[in-house]
């Protein structure tokens, strides 16, 4: 079913579509941090408290999408290199832009980013102390819940980590700029009649995702440098030593 070149493109498109949808939901969730500690903590807690099959089902589904997307991409890259073993002395294009030509590069960096991101905020292996950030703010009852607000803000106070996040989101933006419209093409539902509009919408979507994700680390950094004051830096436990 998916062995042919077109079959593989379908896998890319369908897994891509899942991830395109996911990044929006994720971004919308993230932005609640701007509405305060209570809001974001409550939201995170609600997600964590979903029934086990739904929570892990979704996680595995997303993981599967990433794995399918990455593995198929790898196969395609190998096949494509084999299909054109010798490049032109002058390599140039009339139409194809950087975003479409560098999907492999942006995709690879994004994969690395996803792994880092999971280790950073989800599995919390990089800073195991994030696990101990507990608070009652945002809790539906009086029990302590995980203080996502503090974790994120402390996390983004590391300048280089924030810069990595923003750069990765910029690459995601590029990846989406080609990927969203391309998905429709691979699924066979794009046509020249509405292609220009679709591409515009795809680019707008990509920039919205970029802006929505980048704004949090950028604002944290801005406050770090004393330019603004919107986050409660002293929430949770004692400030961590910054390295």
């Amino acid at each position: 079913m998916f062995a042919s070149s077109i079959g593989k493109k379908y896998l890319m498109a369908v897994s891509g579509l899942v991830l395109i949808g996911f990044v929006f939901v994720h971004m919308a969730g993230n932005l609640q941090i701007l509405m305060g500690q209570e809001k974001i903590n409550a939201y995170a807690h609600a997600l964590q408290s979903l029934p086990m099959p739904i929570l892990w089902g979704s996680r595995l589904f997303l993981l599967a999408a990433v794995v399918v997307h990455a593995v198929t991409a790898y196969q395609l890259v190998v096949e494509n290199r084999r299909a054109r073993p010798q490049s032109n002395y002058i390599e140039t294009t009339k139409k194809a832009g950087l975003a479409s030509l560098r999907m492999g590069l942006t995709g690879s960096i994004l994969l690395a980013f996803i792994i880092f991101h999971l280790l950073h905020f989800t599995i919390r292996l990089i800073y195991p102390e994030y696990d101990e950030m507990m608070t009652t703010v945002g809790s539906p009852d009086s029990n302590k819940i995980h203080d996502v607000y503090t974790m994120v803000i402390k996390g983004f106070q590391h300048t280089w980590i924030s810069i990595f996040y923003v750069v990765a989101m910029f690459l995601l933006c590029g990846h989406l700029a080609h990927g969203v419209s391309s998905t429709f093409q691979s699924l066979g539902i794009r046509s020249e009649n509405w292609r220009a509009k679709l591409e515009l919408a795809a680019k707008a979507y990509a920039w919205v995702i970029f802006a929505g994700f980048s704004i949090v680390p950028l604002l944290v950094l801005a406050q770090n440098w004393g330019m603004i004051n919107i986050f409660n830096f002293s929430s949770g436990m004692e400030p961590l030593a910054l390295n």
Binding site: R82, K94, K95, A96, Q185, I189, S191
Partner: peptide, 28 residues
């Protein structure tokens, strides 16, 4: 042959301006 990555370069290079729509149709 390699796989289509929807660059659109083929259609731009085509001396007869064959549209990418046919690729979408073939996918479908």
């Amino acid at each position: 042959f390699g796989n289509c990555r929807n660059f659109g370069e083929c259609s731009a290079a085509c001396p007869k301006d064959i549209s990418l729509d046919y690729i979408a149709k073939l996918n479908r």
